[in-house]
Amino acid sequence: MDYAKSLSQRLAAPVSKCVSASASMTQQLLAGPAPPPRPYRVCNWDRSLRKGVMAPSLAELLRQAQSALALPAPIALVLDEDGTAVETESFFRTLEEGTALMALSKGQSWTAPKTRGYQVSLSRKPPRRIDVACVTFDLYKTHPKDLGCLNVKATLYGTYSMSYDLRCYGARRLVKEALRWTLFTMQATGHVLLGTSCYMQQLLDATEEEQKEEEKSPVPLQSLLPRSLPALPYKKMLQ
């Protein structure tokens, strides 16, 4: 009888462990993943002490604020900008990260800040800055023997972008490319000079031919007569 009782206890122990483990897993699956902690700013009623805390829920935020500000329990949280009470978890989840909150103990109340625009700078995020132009230079190597490659990327107004990749190969290949470009430049310069000289030679030849034709042409009779004597009439010259 005792043996049967001990055997039943031994069999019931692992079964109870499995049941408890499955129940805890089911509870975790139903509850869902825990929300990640988010940053908040908390201060006391006169804003003389400010702290930054991380909390995933309203209950945890109340505990963190009470511990950071060393306030007696219980405490209440309100928005620092207008005094709106934060009492429910659903409203707490609508708050943005970095929201400024005020922790109030019993007998304390919210008061507006003395300096205007102070709370706006704390509770709201800074305005987003739009860059007009952004140029980045990226220097890298594709082979240990290479001199290096340069990638230049320009972005305009954060939307339009263009890039240029300048690849510098090894020193030997770089010298070959430089000599090749030098030879090409010299050949192009020679062709230009040769064409210019041929064109200038044609102009000079044409000018010399015009001068020779003018020398060979007969001189008119009137140009040989002295300018002081009047020219004879055409009829008298025929007689």
Results as ranks from 00 to 15, higher is better:
residue 1 M to K: 03
residue 3 Y to T: 13
residue 4 A to H: 08
residue 5 K to D: 05
residue 7 L to A: 15
residue 7 L to Y: 06
residue 11 L to Y: 10
residue 11 L to N: 10
residue 12 A to R: 14
residue 13 A to Q: 11
residue 13 A to L: 06
residue 14 P to W: 09
residue 14 P to Y: 11
residue 14 P to T: 01
residue 15 V to F: 11
residue 20 S to K: 13
residue 21 A to K: 05
residue 22 S to R: 13
residue 27 Q to L: 03
residue 27 Q to F: 04
residue 29 L to G: 05
residue 33 P to G: 08
residue 34 A to V: 02
residue 35 P to Y: 04
residue 36 P to G: 04
residue 38 R to M: 07
residue 39 P to C: 03
residue 39 P to V: 01
residue 42 V to L: 04
residue 43 C to T: 14
residue 45 W to P: 03
residue 47 R to V: 04
residue 48 S to C: 11
residue 51 K to F: 03
residue 53 V to Q: 09
residue 55 A to E: 02
residue 55 A to G: 08
residue 56 P to C: 02
residue 57 S to V: 02
residue 57 S to M: 03
residue 58 L to K: 10
residue 62 L to P: 00
residue 67 S to N: 13
residue 68 A to Q: 12
residue 72 P to I: 01
residue 73 A to N: 04
residue 73 A to K: 14
residue 73 A to D: 07
residue 76 A to Q: 14
residue 77 L to K: 04
residue 80 D to Y: 01
residue 80 D to L: 01
residue 82 D to R: 11
residue 83 G to I: 03
residue 84 T to I: 04
residue 85 A to C: 05
residue 86 V to F: 04
residue 86 V to H: 06
residue 90 S to W: 00
residue 91 F to M: 07
residue 93 R to S: 13
residue 93 R to K: 13
residue 95 L to S: 09
residue 96 E to N: 12
residue 97 E to H: 06
residue 98 G to R: 01
residue 99 T to W: 00
residue 100 A to M: 09
residue 102 M to K: 02
residue 102 M to P: 00
residue 104 L to N: 07
residue 105 S to F: 02
residue 107 G to C: 06
residue 108 Q to W: 02
residue 112 A to Q: 12
residue 113 P to S: 11
residue 115 T to G: 04
residue 119 Q to K: 08
residue 120 V to R: 14
residue 121 S to D: 09
residue 123 S to T: 13
residue 125 K to V: 10
residue 127 P to C: 08
residue 127 P to Q: 10
residue 128 R to H: 08
residue 128 R to F: 02
residue 128 R to Q: 15
residue 131 D to T: 06
residue 131 D to Q: 05
residue 133 A to M: 12
residue 134 C to Y: 09
residue 134 C to S: 12
residue 135 V to Q: 11
residue 135 V to P: 06
residue 136 T to H: 11
residue 138 D to P: 05
residue 139 L to R: 04
residue 140 Y to S: 13
residue 143 H to M: 01
residue 149 C to F: 00
residue 150 L to K: 04
residue 154 A to G: 10
residue 154 A to V: 13
residue 155 T to A: 08
residue 156 L to K: 00
residue 156 L to F: 09
residue 158 G to M: 01
residue 159 T to Y: 00
residue 161 S to Q: 06
residue 162 M to K: 05
residue 163 S to T: 05
residue 165 D to N: 08
residue 168 C to T: 06
residue 170 G to F: 00
residue 172 R to K: 09
residue 173 R to W: 00
residue 177 E to S: 12
residue 180 R to H: 08
residue 184 F to Q: 12
residue 188 A to F: 04
residue 189 T to F: 07
residue 189 T to A: 14
residue 192 V to N: 10
residue 194 L to S: 06
residue 195 G to H: 07
residue 195 G to P: 01
residue 198 C to V: 12
residue 199 Y to P: 00
residue 202 Q to C: 11
residue 202 Q to I: 06
residue 202 Q to K: 15
residue 203 L to D: 08
residue 203 L to T: 10
residue 207 T to Q: 15
residue 208 E to I: 14
residue 211 Q to D: 14
residue 213 E to I: 03
residue 215 E to R: 14
residue 215 E to H: 09
residue 218 P to V: 09
residue 221 L to K: 12
residue 222 Q to F: 15
residue 223 S to W: 07
residue 225 L to S: 05
residue 226 P to S: 15
residue 226 P to I: 02
residue 227 R to W: 06
residue 231 A to G: 11
residue 235 K to H: 07
residue 236 K to N: 08
